[in-house]
Structure formats: structure tokens, C-alpha cells
Design a protein around this nucleic acid. Sequence first.
DNA 1: GCAGCGCTGGAAAGCGCTTTCCCGCCACGC
DNA 2: GCGTGGCGGGAAAGCGCTTTCCAGCGCTGC
Lengths: 338, 338
Amino acid sequence: MSARQVTLAEVAKQAGVSLATASRVLNGSTRQVSEDLSERVLRTAEELGYVPNASAQALARNSSSLVGLVVHDITDPYFSCIAAGVTKVAEAAGLSVVLGTTGRRPEREAELLSTLRAHRARAVVLAGSRTTDRAAQSRLAAEIDAFTEQGGRVACVSQAKLGTDTVVPGNRAGGRALARALAELGHKKFAVLGGPSELVVARDRLAGFKAGLADAGIAPPTVINGAFTRDGGYAAAMELLASKSRSTCVFAVTDVMAMGAMAALRERGVRIPEDISIAGFDDIPTLRDTVPALSTVRLPLEEMGEIAAGLVLDAGGDEARTVRVAGEVVLRASTAHN
Amino acid sequence: MSARQVTLAEVAKQAGVSLATASRVLNGSTRQVSEDLSERVLRTAEELGYVPNASAQALARNSSSLVGLVVHDITDPYFSCIAAGVTKVAEAAGLSVVLGTTGRRPEREAELLSTLRAHRARAVVLAGSRTTDRAAQSRLAAEIDAFTEQGGRVACVSQAKLGTDTVVPGNRAGGRALARALAELGHKKFAVLGGPSELVVARDRLAGFKAGLADAGIAPPTVINGAFTRDGGYAAAMELLASKSRSTCVFAVTDVMAMGAMAALRERGVRIPEDISIAGFDDIPTLRDTVPALSTVRLPLEEMGEIAAGLVLDAGGDEARTVRVAGEVVLRASTAHN
DNA sequence: GCAGCGCTGGAAAGCGCTTTCCCGCCACGC
DNA sequence: GCGTGGCGGGAAAGCGCTTTCCAGCGCTGC
């Protein structure tokens, strides 16, 4: 094993041309190479099974063909959909995406960025949700600076104000619209299963929801915070049940949390939507097929990934661009009139 | 922008030592370096914010810190769970994983492997399901050879006999056990929503299921093939319904397909499990929370990813190792007595 | 007292590419 | 006829590391 790899030099020698010429033919360049030399090189490369050494290219060009993607948890449909969008665009551009997962630990984000910087990744998409943790945030900002200084581009999904390109879903507007729609169904008493209070996404959705309720002249909701996961939703719902709240409608700031909440309610014999209505946010694909189908705010997740990748891949000007994508309220069977 | 990156040479100069010494201190080596020099280097590196250039290291060492992961579709929970396992192990080992998606096109697998080879990836985990497409298969085999020749390791999930390390779920055994369990519920007439006929995983599960039915003295099932996706399951179920089959129990070879099938049945007013029982395979997390909860064969997906990554990361001997993981039949509410 | 050894530090030769710089050639214009 | 400019090809200088090889030094053992 370990038969050494075919190098450009071997191809060049075999084809009877110089290294420079071989390089120009095989790996693009502004310079022209005559037809016959070019063809000879191509043919030998083919015969020898030449594959350029990406590390060497990256070193020589000082820029690799890697694109970073940082998510909290790849098994979460929210992130996997975004990941699908990012990989689609990156692969179409001939780039490889390196996937980093933080396991929801904010400090990992900076670490991963540093690794990506070591790899001289050309760009990186940060899909994690921004936290309000000051220390982690400033360490991350420093890494982002270092990364861009080195020539890489950074785009964030749903975490604006970091001085980078951003695709921002209408969290606030979506929450607000949802609240109004739910109010129109006749509900008067609401509960919200909020995510961890330090997550900006969770806070925005909650704030929007509250605003929507206020618009409709409805009292502020009971808020229960929990982890941004299925189990977090489950626990929060259990807590809500224990609190003897008289809410007729529950908003979970995330579809995944809503899923856990529904499991909890069901377990306790609470019927959805007869006894209580429930709505989520994101519209992850699997929850369209459940019974009852979940009412939610639809976000074009995969498209958001594509947009983020698009932003980060075409050079663009110097100032940070922001693309807003709107959420669309989708009422399904999990919410009923009251 | 583009302030040049801090290099090892700068650190060495600043610390007043040679390049060699700095390298030895910062990037591990068998050689000892005296306490004070070592500390001086470490300190300057810290001060300057030195991050080693991974490409240069890869070039010099002729081996990178990249691990490949090839899946069909990252939004499919089956793959995202495996991906989670792989990234967990890889990141723990200080490696970065590059994610490639084939979009279920077999020929992409070879292409991705070639890219990974260009990056001198240290190892790669192939999680796609093996097909019987001869051409794609042999091109893939050639790429695998090239990859291992170059010193990389390859592990496959659920596609044995490729001459590589493999983690094989008990597809056949699981299908068989499931069939028996279902037979015990009293069902006599079965239908199977099989995946595309060229996918080995689908065929194995189907074969096992048939064997299990035979064990129980039950007639072979009606088989309908469809894509390995939610929509494939939906379409297959619709076809089944149209065929006026009198089956009382349906086995979808994949949970994701079962999800689509359930949606189709529901849409047609068929009650689960009263009118028809349904079971899947994989036990993807989301389907534990649906109503009715899906009966299935539980596979430790994330663990399978971890095992695959483990195999591929520790050198191991020369011959291919195979780890079998058993599926466990889990009967839930989607299957009832008949 | 000296050969020999083990150990630490540094010089320098790569690793496989890209790209600058230079050279020779040809076509052209005056 | 010769200077000019444009163009295709090659030599070679890096890119930022790792690692071999060598030098020097303090020990040990005889």
C-alpha cells in the first residue's frame, strides 16, 4: 500500500513539458497554452490518474477550497435543512464543506472558527443561534475578525449585527403575525414555551409574539423557558401543566420544542387541539405529517442555507449585506377555534 | 484586510529560536525541547495569535486532519444521526469532517471520494447505501482502492464486502424478527413498501422480512417499490391502496418511507392501526413522538456513526474489520392485533 | 583521560503546487 | 532591416510547515 501519489511533476515529465505548463493546463490560469501541448498534458494526466494535491494548491494559492459550516446539532432538522442548502451551493461551486458541531456550547463556535482558519477555509457559514453570553460573544467576534483579516468571508444565519453578511429570518415579525392569527381564533389566554433566555432567536420570537398579543389587546402570556430541544419542550410543557395555567393556546418558539411539548400533553391526556391548541416556529418537514399537523411559522430553511452560502461565496463589496426572509404563518390542525 | 497570517517563522524569530524548535514545541514531535525554550515559544505563539497553517502541515506531513463523510441526504434523519456520531468522534480526535452529499446519485460517491483524495483526507466514512449499479460500483471500488493506496482508510456503514472496514446493521435479521413479531399479532396478509430495487439495504430488509413470514408459515407479501424517501413511501402507499390489496399490515423498509405512507393512509381515511397496521425500520427519533408511535426495528444510528469513525481512525490491522450491530424490534401503537 | 553515547538545538532539504520573471520566437510597422 | 510588442514556454522562487541530518555538549564507563 501507500503507493505514492501521482504528482504534477510526473505528469509534466511524462508529457514532456515543464511543470509550469502542466500546472497551467490542469489547474486553470489566465495564460494560454497551445492546443497540442495542452491536449498532451490532459491525456497523460488522465492516464496516470492524476489528482491535484489540494493542500499544496491551498498553500501555493494561500486559499483553500474549503467552506466551513457551523451548527449546534446536525440531527436537529432546523440545522440539517440549512446544511443541505449550504452543501448544495458549495458543491455546485466545486468546494467542499467542513461541518463543525458545537453541541450547543457557545464557546465551541470560536474554537471551530479557529480550526477553520487553520485550514484557510475560504468562507464559513455560522448557523448557530447567537447567545447573549458576553465572553463567548467577544471571543467569537475576535475569531471572526481574525478570519476575515486572513481573507475569509463569514455569513451568519439568524444572528445579525455581527458585522458580517447575514440572512435573517423574520423572527419578531413571524412571532407577531402568529400571535395575531392565534388571537383571531378566539384564544384569550396564552402560554409560551421559550428557549433558553440567552438565545437571541428565542427572545426575538417571544418578543414578537408578545407584541402580537398586545396588538390584539390580549394579556401577556405565561412564559416558561426550557432547552431549545425536544426534551426542553417536553419539560417546559410538563412544567406548564403543573402550574395549573388556564391557557388555551401554547406557542413553542421552535417546532422541535413543540414536538416535545405535544408528547408531554398527550402523555397527560390533554387533547390537541380540543383541550389546548399548540403552535411552533420553523416548519420543519417532519411535523407536516404528524397528527395533528403542527401550526407554525414557515421558514424556507434550505433556501436560507443556500442564500447564506451564496452570500459568502461571491465576493461582494466590503460592507455587510443582510438578506431578510419572511416567515409565513401556516395554521394546521394543532390549533383550533376557541 | 488580508493582514498576513502569523507564521511559524515569525514566532520562532520573535522567541529567538529556530524554526525546527518552534515546530517541535507547537506541533508535537517525539523530540524533547528544554523547558525554558518551550515555554518561551508557547508564550510568543499565544501573544501573536499563531494558528498553524493546516495546508502546510498536511503538505509537509503528507496527511491532513480531514475526515470525509459521504451521505445521500443530510436532512434524512437516518443520515443526520450517523453524521452526528461521526462528527462527535472525529472532533474528539481533533479532526475536521468534510461532509459530502450525493443527492442519491450513486456516481457522486466516486466523485466525492476523489475530492477527498485530493484533500488527502485521512479517512472517510461512506454512509450511503450500496447499489447494485455495476458501473457506479466499479468506479467507486477503483476510487476506494486509490484512496487506500494513498494511505487513507475507508469505512462503510451498511455496505459490506467492499474490502473495507464496515459496520453492518442486522438488516436481514431485523426484517425477519419484525416479520415474526408482526405475525404473532395475528396478521396474515402483508404488504411491503420496498425501496428502490437496486439498493442492497432495501433488498436485505425485504429478504429478511420474507424469510420471517415464511418462518411463520405466511404467504409472501405484496411488494411495492418506491424511492427511499418520505415521498417514495407516500407514493408506494397510494399505489398499494389503489391495488385493492387486502393486507392488514404494511412494512415500510425505512421509517422515513413509513412516515410518508402513514400520511397517505391518513389522507385516504385509513385508520392506523385499526384498519391497517404499519411498521418501519431504523427508529429515527422523531417518529417516537408521533401519533400513533411507529413500530419499527431500532438501530443505534448515532452509535453506528461513532463505530464507523472509530474503525476508520484507529489504524487497525490490514484486513477489513466488520462490526455487526443488531436491530431490536420495537412494537408501538402503529401495529395492533388482528 | 578519552571514546562513545544520548540529548538538545539549528540548518536545510524537501512536500507539491502556483506564479513571477525571463527568454526566444514570430509578426508587424516604419 | 531592425526595433517593438505580444505570446507561449520554462526556470526557479516561494507558500509554511516537518524532519533529517549534523554539531556541540555533558556524561558514563573503562
